[in-house]
């Protein structure tokens, strides 16, 4: 098949960007979306032009490195799928697609489709951990955790930190990302000691990074490749007010 692409090209963080048109020829339905772009890039390189910069690593949908907008939808139209796992069989011959980087004040563009997501690291640094040093842990079975609790914690912990939630949100809110970590740790006995300070510090950091507020649009949940639920945000808000009122 043949796919028409309109791709955001921007040479560097401060450079002026613009859309450029490309055509991907001979696209096989078995290819992943990124493999299709690999082939477009091979063609550009052979012509002595610089390839479209996009990031990816595991190409299995777990590392969270890849991600850009495909015609306005983060990671493209397939639910619960990162763009590296999106296959061309989901498209048809002649489709015209627009590729853009995540757009958010918290995620400055570095080049083409690549953005700087280091704000997510800083949100975790604000409290997304349990403060235990290596070596002093008690036996792993000493604290029982109900299966349902462990499973619920795992549902939240499954976040891959790709940033699609921010990209989908009209406020560019990082609430889904931040709340997933808060929920994961607040569900588990190990996370209780720092439960209050964690939520206060992480929320403060999230605001400082320039992400907007959550207004319950639900766009984040709809595009999340790991199906992280909007309920995490409700939990975060509850945890936040509990912490405020008890502090």
């Amino acid at each position: 098949m043949k796919i028409h692409l309109k791709v955001w090209r921007q040479a560097g963080p401060t450079a002026h960007g613009q859309f450029v048109n490309y055509t991907a020829e001979n696209v096989s339905p078995h290819m992943s979306f990124l493999e299709m772009l690999d082939v477009v890039n091979e063609g550009l390189i052979r012509k002595g032009q610089e390839a479209i910069a996009f990031d990816s690593d595991c190409r299995e949908g777990i590392c969270g490195t890849c991600g850009f907008m495909v015609s306005g939808i983060p990671h493209g139209p397939e639910p619960h799928t990162t763009v590296c796992q999106l296959h061309m069989r989901k498209f048809k011959d002649g489709d015209a697609l627009t590729l853009e980087p995540w757009r958010s004040k918290g995620f400055p563009v570095l080049r083409d489709l690549i953005v700087d997501r280091s704000a997510f690291d800083r949100i975790i640094q604000a409290g997304g951990y349990t403060s235990v040093n290596t070596g002093g842990a008690q036996d792993a079975n000493a604290i029982l955790i109900g299966r349902d609790t462990a499973e619920a914690a795992m549902d939240s912990a499954a976040c891959i930190g790709c940033g699609a939630c921010v990209a989908a949100c009209k406020n560019a809110s990082a609430a889904l990302f931040t709340s997933a970590k808060i929920t994961h740790l607040s569900l588990l006995p190990q996370g209780q000691v720092e439960r209050g300070t964690r939520v206060l510090n992480m929320v403060e950091r999230m605001d400082m990074e320039g992400f907007g507020s959550c207004s319950n649009e639900g766009e984040c949940e709809a595009v999340c490749p790991k199906g992280i639920s909007l309920r995490n945000i409700a939990t975060m808000n509850r945890e936040y007010w509990k912490a405020i009122l008890s502090s």
Binding site: Y129, T130, V132, T134, G135, G136, A137, Q138, D139, A140, N141, I143, L144, I145, G146, R147, A150, E151, A153, M154, A157, H184, L185, L188, Q190, G191
Partner: peptide, 22 residues
């Protein structure tokens, strides 16, 4: 054996039995 203890203390959500054991 220490690794598992350490990871559980960090809050790694390992799979559990209904009784709450790993």
């Amino acid at each position: 054996v220490n690794i598992i203890d350490q990871c559980v203390a960090q809050g790694v959500p390992f799979a559990r039995e209904y009784g709450g054991q790993l």
